[in-house]
Amino acid sequence: MGNISAVTDAQFDEQVLKSDKPVLVDFWAEWCGPCRQVAPILDEINAEHGEKITFLKMNVDENPVTPSSYRVTGIPTINVYQGGEVVKSIVGAKPKAALLKELADFI
């Protein structure tokens, strides 16, 4: 799906929590229709703003530990991590303009 790299439970600490710049993690699953709707939008935002914020995606079916520890109960959930903490959480599929507005502090 798109050009955003996947992150696993095992890599999460290193790639997300210890990152020098903000990291957006898209929690998704193959069977999730709204996840498929938001994926191309995130690809576009990544192409436009990827130098300011790192984009990653995590399949919740293959990696149950991290979503559980961050209380991700509905997908798509998009969390932005900065300094090892969740600084923004966006739940549900949203149009590009709404996502850009939500992410304005980071891009």
Rank of each mutant, 00 (worst) to 15 (best):
E48Y: 03
E48F: 04
I41H: 01
M1V: 14
K52T: 15
V60Y: 05
D9S: 09
L100K: 09
A97G: 01
N63L: 09
V80F: 06
E30C: 00
D61H: 00
D9C: 10
G33Q: 07
G84F: 04
K96F: 09
I4N: 05
S69G: 08
T77V: 14
E44P: 01
V86W: 11
A10R: 03
F106I: 11
K52F: 13
A98W: 05
S89F: 14
V7P: 06
Q11D: 15
E44K: 15
F106D: 09
E30H: 00
K18Q: 11
R71S: 14
C32P: 01
P95N: 03
K18G: 10
Q82E: 15
K96M: 13
V7Q: 00
F12L: 10
V25W: 00
E30Y: 05
K52V: 14
V38W: 04
W28G: 01
T77R: 11
G74R: 11
V25Y: 02
I45L: 13
G83A: 08
R71G: 07
M58R: 03
I90E: 00
A104F: 12
E85V: 02
S69E: 15
I4C: 11
L100D: 11
V7C: 07
F55S: 00
Q11T: 06
N79V: 06
A39H: 07
G92W: 03
A47P: 09
G84W: 05
S68C: 12
E51F: 13
L42P: 12
H49L: 06
E85P: 11
A10K: 13
S89T: 15
V80H: 04
E44R: 12
P22H: 05
S89E: 15
F27W: 02
L56N: 06
V16Y: 00
Q37P: 04
E48L: 15
G84T: 03
V16W: 00
P40C: 12
K57A: 02
D9G: 12
K18H: 10
A10V: 04
Q11G: 07
T54C: 08
V72Y: 03
M1L: 13
T77M: 14
C32I: 05
V7Y: 01
G74P: 10
S68P: 11
P40V: 12
V65H: 02
V87G: 07
V87W: 13
K21G: 07
G74K: 14
I4Q: 00
V25N: 01
Y70S: 08
N3P: 01
E102V: 15
E14S: 11
R71F: 15
L56S: 06
S89C: 05
D20N: 12
D20S: 12
I41R: 06
V25K: 00
M1D: 14
N46T: 13
P34N: 10
H49C: 10
V91N: 07
V16I: 02
Q11W: 08
A93G: 03
L100Y: 09
V16S: 02
G92F: 06
I75E: 01
N79C: 06
L24N: 02
D9L: 05
L24E: 03
D26W: 02
V65W: 03
V65I: 12
S89V: 11
I90M: 13
V60E: 07
Q37L: 12
I41P: 14
L56C: 09
D43W: 06
P64H: 02
S89I: 07
D61M: 03
P40G: 10
G33I: 09
H49R: 13
V38Q: 09
